Computed example of a mutant assay.
Amino acid sequence: MEQEPPLVREVFPELIDELVALLEAEGERDLSITVRDVRMVGECGCGDDFCQSIRTADHPDGQPYGPDHRCVPLLPSTGDLILDVVAGRIVYIEVLGRPPMRRPAQQLDLPA
């Protein structure tokens, strides 16, 4: 049986906490609830050093998301956070120009 991808909140809990707060501030209540349950399907993989974006659903190769797609730009204190939403589902989290995100396991390895 194939294992499900991890929840983004398990990999980057601080990012999800920030997204919840920003979505609430933008009046995006439904998205602020569903962002807690998005799964990390993969990282962007573009190779740009300013990009830490996360795929939360499979993307149609070379194809646009379709007519039910909308972008939800948020206003973080640093960098850019933009959600791609299709039919009410978050399919991509753009994380651009921000300090490196740390996974919980990496945080444990830091000296005190």
Rank of each mutant, 00 (worst) to 15 (best):
P67I: 08
G66V: 02
V41Y: 02
H69F: 15
L15F: 10
P111I: 06
P111D: 07
D109L: 14
R70A: 05
G42Y: 03
R103N: 03
G79R: 07
G62D: 13
D109Q: 14
L23C: 05
E2R: 07
M1N: 12
M1F: 11
D58G: 12
G45Q: 10
Q3M: 08
L31P: 13
E28K: 06
I82L: 15
D84M: 01
A25F: 06
T78I: 08
T34V: 06
S77L: 09
S53C: 12
T34Q: 01
C51T: 12
R89W: 00
P60Q: 03
L96N: 06
P100L: 14
E14Q: 13
P60V: 02
P67W: 06
V86T: 05
D61F: 13
D58V: 15
P104M: 12
E28S: 01
D58A: 11
D17P: 03
I54G: 03
L23H: 04
V20G: 01
S77W: 07
V95M: 00
L15E: 04
I93K: 00
H59W: 15
A87L: 05
R102S: 09
A105T: 14
R103K: 14
I82N: 12
L22R: 06
L23E: 02
E43Y: 14
L108W: 03
Q106K: 06
A87N: 09
P104V: 09
I33A: 04
H59M: 11
Q107L: 13
P104A: 11
P99L: 02
L23F: 07
D37E: 13
D17Y: 04
G79F: 10
Q3V: 12
G42W: 08
P64R: 02
L23A: 07
L74W: 01
E28F: 05
A112N: 10
P5W: 07
L7C: 11
G97P: 06
R102A: 08
R70L: 06
V86M: 00
E2G: 02
F50K: 12
E28L: 03
R9E: 14
V35W: 04
C44R: 00
E10P: 01
V91K: 01
D58W: 11
V41L: 01
S53A: 10
M40H: 09
D48N: 14
F12Y: 15
V95G: 00
P13Q: 03
D84H: 07
T34W: 01
C51V: 14
P73I: 12
Y65H: 09
M1C: 13
S53I: 04
P111A: 08
Y92W: 15
E24Q: 09
G45H: 12
